[in-house]
Nucleic acid binder design. Structure first.
Length: 730
DNA sequence: GTCCTAAATTTTTTT
DNA sequence: AATTTAGGAC
């Protein structure tokens, strides 16, 4: 069916006023009405992509092209999914029965339905990063791999990237891959996947990978879903990885009504396996695909848009878009040069107060940083000034130790065979179960091919565990059984309170007299409150593993937001502050070191995302000195600043006007040294960027300084850590 | 097995 | 600086 047929069969869409479609510009409307066949919408920042997606869904529903249950809408964050559901509901209602969510939550849903086909049961658990590392560590021990030279994190990263590419262990065949980590990676991967199955667990990557396996091995399952989903919509398409792409292609193979919305200039997740190439591939894999460009930006002022456009023009290999805006006027960008991060925070704080006096709400302002640690200076400043703020994505509620412990108790109650949960809390609080006992439990569990819980029961019955140890374990097992029974008669909140009390967990923190113990007890209280909102324990556990953001507990919504640039994608604010535009931090040194020009271009896209978040006003600042690992380092302004045309930017007075003083390094340390009377003339020349010579490694440049330790990028030998004593100036 | 101290490590971005 | 890990004493 093409558009003209559809229009004639649905006369409302053109001849009569249609409030749904009339609010759109011609390109947006085209994207909404092209319901049949593959469509790629290249939507620049602020061009109304969410609006297109939601209107498209509403349009499909109101034209009765499909029932809600026949539409699949995939997003990248739960937040985006929630927002979309809300807006679809406003437009047409019935959004609750849509298949709408992140790739991962939809994966969990589908895999639970067909768990037995994958060798799992429907109550499988989803591992988080912590569980994953612990499991890998155990496996590495069993495989006799030294975790000093090859940390578990390395294997975690390699396995993750294989999963992102849709590679199960048998599909890892390329010579480079087989040689990863000296050939150990594939061994670990095989063992890891086997153990996951034995534990009835999956990790994040598996949520996609298992779906692929399910669809390719079980044709009838694929058929069921491919036929069901008449319309598939994908948000942030530029950030899909190969596995997700393959999955989408399978799902769309029957109806072929796949609509992907993305912006190659906003691809910022290549480190997570995202392939910008998926956009280019789209036109190749779907030769009849309609490509629609949205280039009219309704969000930002001309100066902001011009700055963003000029910056991103430095990237090669773009599909190319030119954004324009009907907005006529607006301020130029404001550039502030400051001495250090403290001054940067003071400056932002003062501007925020000025803006408040100008009647701009805090909730319309945001500070976007490159790396999480940068928020600290602002938090401290805002606390002293009394400016309410919220850190988005910072320390996550469900990642705190006390919450993870409490959740582990719930996991053991919900499914006793969850050995990872068992291991986490069997000795928390202390019950006298140490390494030796754990070893015994593990051995028994494996020889009986069962879980740690069952192994414990077995050893208690057979009398192989006696005395103090036996009574402690007996008490624990008995408690678990009782708690499980109480799930039937008590509410979830009551069970949580009971478990925390009777296990002695709460008491453990009460006895601890550190200042943070009180906060932890608060968090536990919050947990028992939050769990009350769930139907059953499994629904709650799913929420814990897939939903990363904590709900806004208090009613105060007028707060300034602090977050990383990555977390800001898809959001917009009247006023944006972009601090820390310094070489080494932004673009981040590690991105440059590890991915060279590709890394630089991704950093530039990140800058582009940051700039285009702003509706009306944008501040960029850079500090001449920054403390990293508690070491003062001097830095020069980011190259990205010079890529913004002078006409669009205004240098604010004060600070250093962009010329850092070379001698700035360690000035605070020196002052401290003078005051303490132990000042020695320091070697002033060993700072970042200095060219040096080393007896063994040859010539190189200093990448970072931490005390006597230097990180040096050698011309021949690559990156090495060496002591300052061993290098001389080149 | 547990507790204490020393040493290593951290901070790029996350579903 | 702050937090996690390793090693050793008890």
């Amino acid at each position: 069916m093409n558009i003209s047929q559809e229009v004639s069969s649905a006369p409302h869409s053109q001849s009569m006023p249609n409030p749904l479609l009339d609010a759109l510009n011609p390109e947006q409307r085209q994207a909404v009405e092209a319901t049949q066949g593959p469509v790629l919408v290249l939507a620049g920042a602020g061009t109304g992509k969410t609006r297109v997606l939601t209107t498209r869904i509403a349009h499909i529903l109101t034209s009765k092209l499909a029932w809600p249950g026949e539409i699949l809408a995939v997003t990248f964050t739960n937040k985006a999914a929630r927002e979309m559901a809300e807006r679809v509901n406003q437009l047409s209602g019935g959004a609750q029965s849509l298949w709408m969510g992140t790739f991962h939550s939809i994966g969990a849903r589908i895999i639970r339905r067909h768990a037995e086909k994958l060798g799992l049961t429907s109550s499988f658990t989803i591992l988080d990063a912590d569980d994953q590392i612990r499991l890998l560590k155990t496996l590495m021990g069993e495989l006799h791999i030294d975790d000093k030279s090859m940390p578990p994190k390395l294997f975690s990263a390699i396995i993750q990237s294989w999963k992102d590419q849709g590679l199960t262990p048998v599909k890892v065949t390329s010579p480079q891959d087989l040689q990863q980590a000296g050939g150990q990676a594939i061994r670990v991967y095989r063992a890891y996947q086997e153990r996951l199955k034995a534990l009835n667990a999956v990790d994040f990557g598996d949520l996609i990978l298992h779906m692929l396996t399910l669809f390719t091995v079980h044709q009838e399952v694929l058929e069921e879903y491919a036929k069901r989903f008449k319309y598939i919509l994908v948000d942030e398409y530029q950030d899909t990885n190969v596995a997700q792409y393959l999955w989408l292609r399978l799902l769309a193979s029957y109806h072929k009504n796949l609509c992907c919305v993305g912006d190659d200039d906003q691809s910022i997740y290549s480190w997570r396996g995202a392939e910008v190439g998926n956009i280019l591939r789209f036109e190749r894999d779907f030769p009849d695909a309609k490509v629609i460009r949205l280039e009219c930006n309704y969000r930002s002022t001309p100066h902001i848009l011009a700055a963003a456009g000029a910056l991103i023009a430095n990237n090669r290999g773009r599909l190319g878009k030119t954004l324009w805006t009907p907005i006529k006027e607006g301020d130029r960008l404001r550039l502030k040069s400051v001495w250090d991060e403290g001054e940067e925070a003071r400056f932002v704080g003062e501007e925020v107060e000025d803006l408040q006096r100008a009647k701009i709400n805090l909730k319309d302002m945001a500070i976007l940083v490159r790396a999480g640690f940068q928020t600290r200076a602002f938090e401290e400043r805002f606390l002293t000034m009394g400016i309410p703020y919220r850190v988005i994505g910072g320390l996550r509620f469900y990642e705190r130790a006390e919450i993870r412990d409490a959740v582990a108790y719930l996991r053991i109650i919900a499914s006793p065979d969850d050995s990872l949960a068992f291991e986490r809390i069997i000795n928390t609080p202390k019950r006298g179960i140490g390494q030796a006992t754990m070893q015994q439990l593990h051995t028994t569990a494996r020889s009986l091919n069962t879980s740690l819980y069952n192994a414990t029961v077995h050893l208690l019955k057979s009398g192989e565990i006696k005395g103090k140890l036996a009574s402690a374990l007996n008490l624990f097992i008995g408690n678990c059984q009782r708690w499980r029974k109480q799930l039937e008669s008590l509410t979830l909140s009551e069970v949580v309170d009971l478990v925390l009390e009777e296990s002695g967990y709460r008491q453990m923190w009460q006895q601890e007299k550190t200042p943070e113990a009180a906060g932890r007890l608060e968090n536990l209280k919050e947990l028992s409150r939050a769990i009350g909102e769930f139907e059953n324990i499994n629904a709650f556990l799913e929420h814990v593993s897939l939903v990363t953001e904590a709900a806004d507990a208090n009613g105060n919504t007028d707060m300034i937001s602090l977050m990383t640039l990555h977390a800001a994608k898809g959001l917009e604010f009247d006023v944006i502050f972009l601090p820390g535009w310094e070489e080494g931090l932004f673009p981040h040194q590690r991105a440059l070191d590890e991915s060279g020009n590709k890394g630089l271009e991704e950093e530039r896209r990140l800058a582009y995302v940051g700039i285009t978040r702003a509706r009306r006003r944008l501040y960029i600042s850079h500090a001449a000195n920054r403390r990293i690992y508690n070491q003062w380092q001097s830095s020069i302004p980011s190259r990205f600043i010079s890529e913004i045309p002078k006409d669009n930017i205004e240098q604010l007075p004060g600070g250093l006007a962009g010329t850092p003083r070379p001698s700035a390094r360690n000035w605070k340390d020196e002052v401290a040294a003078i005051l303490s009377g132990s000042h020695k003339r320091e070697e002033p020349t060993l700072s970042r960027g200095t060219r040096i010579f080393h007896q063994k490694f040859g010539y190189g440049r200093i990448a970072a300084v931490s005390g006597d330790h230097l990180d040096i990028e050698f011309e021949k030998a690559g990156f090495k850590k060496v002591l300052a004593d061993f290098v001389t100036l080149a």
